[in-house]
Amino acid sequence: MAMVDYYRPLRLNQVDSSLQEEIKQACGVDVELCLECGKCTGGCSNAHIFDLTPRKIVQLVKLGDEKRLLNMDSLWTCVSCQLCVDRCPSHIDIPRVMDYMREKARKKNVKAQRQSIEIFHDLMLDSIRKTGRVAEAPLALKHNLRTRQYLKDADLGRRMFFKGKLNPFAPKVKNVKQVQDLFAKTIDKKEG
């Protein structure tokens, strides 16, 4: 896999189009349509803190640099605001590509640069699996415990509790068993 390192520039003849094809098959996104105009990054909500901006992400798909894409911090700081695809003259669905890369990163067990994200996602899924809904109080509590930020949000939580807005018990939906069934058939199913 070609990578940029300090001693040798990227060798284009060693780059193949397998990542580009994969993205095309899996996400229906053809990066060849990119005009490299930069309107995506120009409007991106978080471009100023991304390490790799939307246009660069599309370029990396063309260059087949999967490793860089799986390890980038932007993968987890993107808020999916959809502005990039809305402004793109070629309608390239960058949020879809991000979703796909996130799934791949999880599957390949690539450690996110910020650990708290994975913990959060596990907890989120867990909440839905158990109750069918997202219960934010237990979620926030567990997240802060697991990331060892014990006192984070404590003040907020206290205020919310005394206002009667914090339900420490997560209410379940009527047919929770069905939700768990859905999980069993899809996400939790062992990859065949």
């Binding site: 490299e36 105009c37 930069g38 309107k39 995506c40 990054t41 120009g42 409007g43 991106c44 471009a47 100023h48 901006t53 246009r55 660069k56």
Partner: peptide, 11 residues
Amino acid sequence: VRAEDTLMGVP
């Protein structure tokens, strides 16, 4: 005006 300087890659 907000844009990206694509040659430098910065917004």
